[in-house]
Amino acid sequence: MRITCLNGWGGTLHDHLLPWLADAPPDILCLQEVVHSPDTEADWLTYRDGDHVLPQRANFFRDVCAAMPDHQAVFCPAARGVLWQGETAIPSFWGLATFVHRARPIIGQVQGFVHKDYAHDGYGEHPRSRSAHGVRVHDADLGRSVSVVHMHGLRDLAGKMDTPERAAQAARLRDMSRQMSRPGDLRVVCGDFNVLPDSETLEILRADGLTELVTAGGHDGTRTSHYTKPGKFADYMLVDDPDAVRRFDVVRAPEVSDHCPLELEL
């Protein structure tokens, strides 16, 4: 089984990302920063937040579904705000999504919020609402079930330092993983956590018996050349049974986002 975790950057590099996914789709894709704007057929919209202006693939969720037609897809919105087509405001959902190959039976799911609650009338003030989603699938080759939970950790304008809010979201993520898992399952927890390697977030998850693979593998960051700020760590993947890991990698090429995909093979 191959599991990929990626912050998709709102589909900004979709011309690179979609062929990469279609060429060798993982069994499970955990995708953060997903845009879903069902009221428009436009290809591109613009996100505006003060001086922060970004192109967004208007129906990024639909695009990825089309690139992976053999996968079941679940979109989990964190907020409903607006993107812009020129000076026209277009309602748009923002959140994360999970894609599971149809050959992998989904035998459990969990969905909820790790920070705040659903923002139905605008994206809200920073730090904004953050959701998490998990699936439990059975792998006949492994002879066991695998539970995979991912989140997009809150973005604090002050930086990636430890805060009570980040500690609380880590505890909620841990509890969601516990809730869905059963004895004997292989547990995987992943996502764009928006924290540094020495964070309290990772300590909370390690204390629950999880091993973090990015830092354990000696990788020097998880951001691509499209990210020009200092501090190259954001994305993490943890497992509770390191002996089950056949391969783990931080994928450097092709660059499909300003984040590197994390790939786990069991």
Rank of each mutant, 00 (worst) to 15 (best):
H52M: 12
H52E: 15
V53F: 00
V53N: 00
L54K: 03
P55L: 10
P55V: 08
Q56V: 07
Q56D: 05
Q56F: 02
R57K: 08
A58T: 05
A58N: 06
N59V: 07
F60M: 12
R62A: 15
R62C: 10
D63L: 00
D63M: 01
A66R: 07
A67R: 02
A67E: 06
M68W: 08
P69K: 09
D70Y: 04
D70Q: 08
Q72F: 07
Q72V: 05
Q72R: 14
F75K: 02
C76F: 12
C76M: 15
C76R: 10
P77I: 08
A78M: 12
R80A: 15
G81R: 02
V82P: 00
L83T: 08
L83E: 08
G86V: 09
G86M: 07
E87W: 05
E87M: 08
E87C: 07
T88D: 02
P91M: 15
P91F: 14
F93D: 08
G95W: 03
A97L: 05
T98F: 03
R102F: 01
A103W: 09
R104L: 04
R104H: 06
R104I: 03
R104C: 01
R104V: 04
I106Y: 14
I107F: 05
G108N: 05
Q109V: 07
Q109D: 12
Q109E: 15
V110L: 00
Q111V: 15
F113A: 03
F113C: 01
V114K: 04
K116S: 13
K116C: 12
D117P: 02
Y118I: 09
H120Y: 09
H120K: 09
D121M: 09
G122W: 14
G124E: 14
E125A: 14
E125V: 12
P127H: 05
R130S: 14
R130L: 11
R130E: 12
S131Y: 06
A132I: 11
H133E: 14
R136P: 07
V137W: 08
H138E: 13
H138C: 02
D139K: 09
A140E: 12
D141R: 02
G143M: 13
S145M: 03
V149W: 04
V149K: 04
H152D: 15
G153P: 06
L154Q: 04
R155D: 13
R155N: 14
D156N: 06
L157R: 08
A158G: 04
G159D: 04
G159W: 01
M161S: 15
T163N: 07
T163E: 13
P164W: 08
P164A: 14
E165H: 05
E165P: 00
R166E: 13
A167Y: 09
A168C: 08
A168S: 11
Q169G: 06
